[in-house]
Amino acid sequence: MSAESPKNVILLPQTNQLLSLYTIIRNKETQRSDFVFYSDRIIRLLVEEGLNQLPVEPKTVSTPTGEVFEGVKFLGKICGVSIIRAGESMEQGLRDCCRSVRLGKILIQRDEETALPKLYYEKLPEDIASRYVFLLDPMLATGGSAIMATEVLLSRGVKPERIFFLNLISNPEGISNYHKKFPDIKIVTGAVDRGLNESKHIVTGLGDFGDRYYCI
């Protein structure tokens, strides 16, 4: 894991607790119920960190005893956009923090013939251009799908500085590919792994997140 975070990469504090959570979900011996539970815990931390990036504005409220409290309030509307299927695992974590948050979906799969990602489906909130967007995909490998998904968002009028890409595991190559295209988009990640192997899987990684979360 890299020691320093490059610009616009927000790495969760690498506490012992977080490392032990990652140890569980990386371990191939871990059963699905534990995998889901501990992934969900990390996702919750990622979502909280993502939400921390959002601006607030001053707000004065009065307390039940009529005293005045100078506080702040959330500013702007948000929505989540998950990349089907693995990204959907992160929707509940976002809903746990923002109850009725709008959720968009994008399906991107690798074309068997060209080996390039291909957009199959998108369903996004009408007013997405006026919202902060949390792009959800647990694994940032080469960044191919995320780049394509982000292009969809930008084509719908979302401003780059209003997009936050949340993932559990990234790697330097994926981050660099993504930031070459979108230097202003913040990546919120829990782990920056060593790199990619010849079949473009993240090393260390944890295997196929979607399979482990939904099937195996």
């Binding site: 894991m1 012992n16 140890t23 482990r212």
Partner: peptide, 28 residues
Amino acid sequence: SKALELLTYKPSDIPIITPTNVPVDNAL
């Protein structure tokens, strides 16, 4: 979550291997 960070953690006794057969470096 903050409080659970204060628990004691130690490196795993046995090697932790991912489904892609990569050993995990910082296994705790």
